[in-house]
Amino acid sequence: MKKVFFVLSMLFIATITNAQDKFFTKTGKVSFDATATKSPENITGVNKSTTMVLDTKDGNMQFLILMKGFEFERALMQEHFHENYVETSKFPKADFKGSITNNATVNYTKDGVYNVAVKGKLTIHGVTKDVETTGKITVKGGKISAFANFSILLADYNVSIPSLVADKVAKNAKISVDCSLELLKR
């Protein structure tokens, strides 16, 4: 009987700790910058409704982005992005599934800025590619935030830029990620 009780309480504790491991946001920010040196203006768009989940125990993370949520200052630029380049009606979602490869070096219970390496699969425009980048996890007063900057080759994701404007749009788009996470309560 004692044994059963012990096992049950261990299981209970395990479930509790498990619940404390996952952090998420639904208001993560992902920005896109395809400004080339010859661009007449900045080609930048931002998505403010990115979903991200991070499991601090194993470093696994997942992002989900609704592509229609990318906003640009100029309406024409936004229309080109959605209709001609990334075809967001055909491919409304982008996602990233990966993990922090040096998760053991991050102490999620201690304030600090931790440099991390992230590896995973990014799907945009219906094309999935392996992506590796470095990023930062900051822990401040129990709040966890995740940051990363990396660039992707648009051609890798079958995003073609018409030759007429080819030198006005960067071939490598810079992606930056800024997510403030909160504890996932179950």
Partner: peptide, 21 residues
């Protein structure tokens, strides 16, 4: 708002329809 899509409950966060702007 402008509808940008739907996230199904795959991550254990509930499912959401998103309106932007």
């Amino acid at each position: 708002g402008v509808c940008t899509g739907y996230t199904a409950d795959e991550l254990g966060l509930g499912s959401d329809v998103i309106l932007n702007r």
